[in-house]
């Protein structure tokens, strides 16, 4: 599968597919987004190839969701160029299932042949371990189950780009661990490019190949995760990277020490 890139934003005139950029299925250049007089995104550059798994960290209010919504095509940028695969899907922090549709109909939501695609829906549900819940109503699912349905729905369309906006934030710790394994496994099987927005540094290190930090309107940190799989928290390289990222986010030991020193003086 080679997802075709589609221009989402045409502020920069007619779409121009650059030959050098052709292998990038996500190509974001100099994206700006302004709310009022504040530029939340101010020159964001981001490129993804097929199969890339990128985690995006950043303080609350940094504009992570804003960037993800632009990539999803839900919002338009105020400037810059955005190219993304036509086939994209999103898992949000909430499952966002249509309550009036049975679980399997939610999985094939949007398909023109949805009525006849029960089999495909059940196959997708089986991947998240919920084939037996195909005929349930969304309100009867637990939080973790509903989120798995949302994941099944996102993958059932075979997206070129999978956007995840803190999809595990509302889950309990045990369910979250299971979801990490599940997402890792499913992404390896389906090979979409993934952009995972998260606040959880461990989650980012466990899952992503590259970790970016968005702050002050642009991507300030871009580190490649060079730890063999399966990654373990006990791995010293894991701990090193974790410490490094926490420092960059302003909550690491060094950052806290600096803050304390400042208060003391």
């Amino acid at each position: 599968m080679s997802p075709s890139a589609e221009p989402l934003d045409t502020t920069a005139g007619p779409p121009q597919v650059l030959s050098a950029a052709e292998e990038y299925i996500v190509d974001v250049r100099g994206v700006r987004r302004v709310f009022g007089d504040r530029a939340v995104l101010d020159g964001v550059d981001l490129r993804l190839r097929q199969g890339d798994f990128i985690a995006l960290l950043g303080p609350s209010g940094a504009g992570k969701t804003t960037l993800l919504r632009i990539l999803a095509g839900l919002d338009a940028a105020d400037g810059g160029q955005v190219l993304a695969p036509k086939a994209r899907s999103v898992v949000f922090q909430e499952p966002r299932l249509v309550p009036a549709r049975r679980v399997w109909r939610n999985v094939v939501l949007g398909s023109r042949r949805a009525r006849h695609e029960r089999g495909r829906a059940i196959a997708a549900l089986a991947e998240v371990g919920l084939a037996t819940h195909a005929d349930a109503w969304p309100v009867t699912l637990s939080g973790g189950e509903a989120q798995r349905v949302a994941l099944a729905r996102a993958l059932a369309t075979e997206p070129g780009l999978l956007l995840l906006d803190e999809p595990f934030a509302a889950l309990d710790a045990l369910t979250r661990i299971r979801m990490h394994d599940l997402v890792g496994e499913l992404v390896k099987r389906h090979r979409p490019a993934v952009l995972l927005v998260t606040h959880d540094v461990d989650e980012a290190i466990l899952l992503a190949d590259r970790i970016l930090i968005l702050s002050d309107g642009s991507i300030g940190v871009d580190v490649t995760v060079d730890i063999d799989e399966p990654r373990r928290r006990s791995d010293p390289r894991f701990q090193d990277l974790r410490q490094q990222l926490l420092d960059k986010l302003g909550v690491g030991r060094a950052a806290r020490a600096a803050a304390l020193a400042e208060i003391g003086s």
Binding site: A72, G73, V90, F92, R96, V98, P99, L109, G110
Partner: peptide, 27 residues
């Protein structure tokens, strides 16, 4: 609005968005 966005993400627009997401939910 979040539900409507979910429909849009999966390609529902206009009439199909209305019949598959909005109307059943407003019933």
């Amino acid at each position: 609005k979040k539900l409507v966005e979910a429909g849009q993400i999966f390609g529902l627009r206009g009439w199909r968005l209305a019949t598959q997401v909005i109307l059943p939910t407003a019933l």
